[in-house]
Design a protein around this nucleic acid. Structure first.
Lengths: 341, 341
DNA sequence: GTTAGCACTCAGTAGTGGAGAGTGCTAACA
DNA sequence: TGTTAGCACTCTCCACTACTGAGTGCTAAC
């Protein structure tokens, strides 16, 4: 790969991303100033094809970047693009204290990301690893109902209502509370979830009305571990490469499967933006898609992921900048929140 | 409309729903036992077309039902279809106490409805009209933070954390609590939301750290008023009439607009199943769609809506039964929940 | 090593000609 | 008067063909 080939590959990727049409040698010669004629470009393109960076849909068509070609572009050729000031302020606006719930902030981030990139945006919610139980209170609602309030260090509040067969004496309730507090306060959430059920069953011993399965579920501190927001799946339909209903149908069906999306958004590595191109993605249906993700974190601990899914023919540079910026902003927001508490 | 025309229209609708192909007179004569020849059917079809119940895509094609034809079918011809036992048990299974959160139940209902009908399912979450504040407690988290827990009669739990500039004295907190309880317990949520902010601002007078907008939002009992679950939009792509990307693109874009979906799911009338056919829907993009909705309620009060969106060429009978059953089951669930309290 | 020129390939498009489905009309029939 | 068989007619759909244009690879000259 000499310098000229690199320039050529870059030009091919750029043009193909812009036009969605296979790029011919004459087009390159006219539009991009490589200082050589189309014949030379033809020779170089032939080399690039032999090397596997570009391919030809059919013999009389131009070339399009291969997965390897995109990978090379993303790893070595892509220049960092600065984000449009209007777009920066749109993102900053979002975080300017108008929203309270973490959920809402993330949902709106997702919406905005989709809107700014014109692709499909995904945001995986913060998970609770490393979080601890900071507060636990049992409250009597009426005579036969107990409300359990649990608050974690990171500000996650959980409520559970338990129905009992006979009235609860406040003194007993306080005993229970003391007991549970001693056992679980300052404990990390994983341990709480592991042991709280056993403890509660022991305490409530047969007096609680709900079936065992319900109690089991109630005795868990549940967070947003499992949630993935997804906005703009209809943007897929706007891409010229997805004009085929069957192709796009499988993609959209996949997008509707929360579990799959969760796996897709599992954090890869911290700090950096990660780009997965076509066949690098774990689902065959997405072999013509690319995913750009970045993690957001607090205290160096990854707590969630933001991402953008589009066609492999994606505006990588812009998308990477955007996802990166959004992730950083989210990390900042959570830092501010945690300081406030 | 004599009996024979009715039978004919019914046959045309049935066949078109099954095959998605315009129905010809010979097809009817062969497949449906009307006791007359195709020539007679042709004459009758010509009449039905004059009356506006069916139409011809082009001169040498069969007939398809018009919006008026579907309307007549739904209002007068459709027979109530009993639901497949397997499907009934699938629905009942869903409600067999495995899920705790109302949210989860509704989300799963939506998912199931989409899965059973093969169309797009919508569930609008219960709103709080008529609900009252049943419980209010202020809890000290650390020294500078107050957790406000509010529980409504219908079991909606709300938590709000307020940050204060200086430590809060427990006695003061109790005073505040007494005051707020006197003012708002047993009050309906609308009034609470209207007046709680003013009251809190008065009490907390300048000591609270958050900006005014955040306090305002925190001083609201927020429910699920605005949420609409939507599952199975990719099912739209499976319909033969939606093989045209542009058509389906506009529909999917519409489905992504929460506000629009909220309006679509605004309850129409109680108890009954409502069917909106094509142009009867408020959005032009949906002129080839039909929506079947039913409300679910507690104590005769509508609290939410379930619905199924599909092509106008919809299996109305089955869909109506399904939506109806699901709505009734949801009403039952909420009744049981309320009795439990 | 670069370039101009040229033959060649192939997707895409427009035009053409059945084939088939379905109708409307007419005339005969019960 | 209502029903039916028959037939001409219309129009979509599909396959086939020819043409065009984009783009290549190769060769020979610079």
């Amino acid at each position: 790969m000499d310098e000229r080939k690199r320039k050529l590959l870059k030009a091919i990727v750029k043009d193909y991303v812009d036009t969605a049409e296979p790029v011919g040698s004459r087009t390159i010669a006219k539009k991009y100033d490589l200082g050589v004629s189309s014949a030379t470009i033809r020779n170089e393109m032939s080399d690039l094809e032999d090397l596997g960076y570009i391919e030809q849909p059919h013999v009389s068509a131009g070339r399009i970047p291969s997965q390897k070609g995109y990978r090379y572009f993303v790893d070595y050729l892509m220049e960092k693009e600065s984000i449009d000031p209007g777009e920066v302020s749109a993102i900053n606006n979002l975080f300017s204290h108008k929203l309270i719930e973490i959920d809402e902030i993330l949902k709106e981030s997702c919406r905005l990301l989709s809107h700014l990139t014109n692709y499909t945006a995904l945001v995986a919610l913060p998970h609770m690893e490393g979080d601890t139980l900071n507060y636990l209170q049992l409250l009597l609602l009426g005579t036969n109902q107990v409300l359990v309030v649990m608050v974690t260090k990171n500000g996650l509040v959980n409520n559970r209502v338990f129905d009992f067969q006979r009235p609860i004496i406040p003194d007993v309730l306080e005993q229970w509370e003391q007991h549970l507090r001693q056992k679980f306060l300052k404990t990390d959430i994983a341990t709480v979830n592991e042991k709280l059920l056993a403890e509660m069953t022991k305490l409530f011993a047969g007096e609680c009305e709900s079936p065992a399965a319900v109690i089991a579920k109630k005795a868990q501190v549940s967070g947003n571990d499992n949630k993935v927001f997804l906005v703009g799946s209809s943007n897929m339909l706007k891409q010229p490469e997805f004009q085929d209903i069957d192709k796009v149908k499988y993609i959209l069906e996949l997008l509707e499967q929360d579990e799959r999306m969760r796996q897709l958004m599992a954090p890869v590595r911290e700090g950096d933006v990660n780009v997965s191109i076509g066949p690098e993605l774990p689902y065959a249906e997405m072999k013509e898609c690319s995913l750009v993700t970045a993690t957001y974190s607090v205290d160096g601990k990854i707590i969630g992921t933001v991402g953008v899914l589009g066609p492999t023919r994606m505006a990588y540079s812009k998308t990477v900048s955007m996802v990166d910026y959004m992730a950083r902003q989210l990390s900042d927001i959570f830092k501010i929140r945690n300081q406030g508490e």
